[in-house]
């Protein structure tokens, strides 16, 4: 009986999906960002401005966030339906509070964390950080991974002086030589280049994925409520987002223009550069092997192992498979 009603619901949902294109009112979806608008999020703005959501019968409202954990809290508390954020933050949120949120599509198949330094500095590789001063944002998700990454490279984390500061002070401190390196996501590189240029310096990026850091990063998520109550709407959101990412990867400048059209404060040129720097995180050997958006079980497990180790959780504290819902991928 239950099965039959489920089939019925699916048929009904499919019918509704067809209907939504023409006659039905658009489905309203609140889309939670993990930070203020920026170039790395160009694809999401393209999805709205290019009408990819509209074509799926969706009316999407964007809501800016203040960090991955903030975005996940908004999803868990029901003030947003879908969102983006680091999957490591989701893993922590579920391990700590059983947050009712699932990852539904991977965006970055590589971790975006990196060490930023200036060209010509004494830091040429990760081993050179011994005895140096490195600054990081106080609430950065990279902070937990940092000591684990160093240990796996045979470096004592205590041999590096780590300063925790407000994120807005990182680039100026690096430019003024107050610190030897900073910890950032590689997607913010273009902004740092602009600041460093004012001090006559050039940016050098050492991605942690070159030093053994493996796993999924930025991901699309949905609340359990959305997954249970409106699965077919969610499927269309994912479909539109896939289209939007394809579009943005093929036309970064046009996607940045879409962002600029909706957020006038944006510097379109810098936004395009930021999106370009995120493309290798989306399209790489991992996505070539498994396909874009996929959560491949082994890499998902590796991602969890990194998080577990950095948060001092027992590895069996949770099964990473319970954090993802793959049904919404095309």
């Amino acid at each position: 009986m239950k099965k039959m009603s489920k089939t019925l619901a699916h048929t009904l949902a499919a019918l509704l999906a067809c209907g939504a294109m023409s006659v039905h009112a658009a489905d309203k979806v609140v889309f939670q960002l993990d930070w203020v608008p920026g170039g790395d999020k160009s694809a999401i703005y393209a999805a709205i401005n290019q009408g990819f959501f509209k074509a799926e019968g969706l009316e999407v409202t964007l809501q800016s966030g203040r960090g991955s954990s903030d975005a996940i809290t908004k999803l868990a508390s029901g003030s947003a339906d879908v969102g983006v954020g680091g999957i490591a933050a989701l893993m922590t949120a579920v391990a700590e509070n059983k947050a009712p949120v699932k990852a539904i599509m991977s965006i970055y198949a590589k971790e975006p964390d990196a060490l930023f330094t200036v060209k010509g500095s004494s830091i040429k590789g990760i081993k050179d950080v011994v005895g140096k001063t490195v600054a990081t944002a106080t609430f950065s998700s990279s902070n937990a991974l940092w000591p684990v990454m160093l240990k796996r490279q045979g470096i004592d984390p205590d041999s590096v002086k780590l300063l925790k500061v407000d994120p807005t002070t990182l680039a100026p401190m690096l430019a003024q030589g107050k610190v030897d390196a900073t910890i950032n996501w590689i997607t913010v590189g273009p902004g740092y280049e602009a600041v460093l240029a004012q001090a006559g310096k050039t940016l050098e990026i050492l991605p942690w994925s070159n030093y053994g850091l493996d796993g999924y990063g930025w991901s699309m998520m949905a609340s359990d409520k959305m997954i249970q109550e409106r699965p077919e709407v969610l499927k269309r959101v994912v479909k539109a987002m896939r289209k939007a990412f394809d579009y943005a990867i093929a036309n970064p400048d046009a996607a940045a223009a879409d962002l600029k059209a909706m957020v006038p404060e944006i510097d379109a040129k810098k936004a395009a550069a930021e999106f370009r720097s995120s493309i290798p995180l989306i399209q790489n050997e991992v996505s070539a092997k498994d396909g874009i958006g996929v959560f491949e079980p082994v890499l998902l497990k590796t991602t969890w192992e990194w998080v577990a180790q950095s948060m001092n959780y027992p590895v069996d504290k949770l099964d990473p498979e319970t954090l993802v819902d793959r049904r919404f991928l095309p």
């Binding site: 920026g38 800016s64 994120p167 602009a194």
Partner: peptide
């Protein structure tokens, strides 16, 4: 919001 946005994008 504008102050937060502006400082976070330098």
């Amino acid at each position: 919001y504008l102050i937060l946005f502006a400082t976070s994008t330098f």
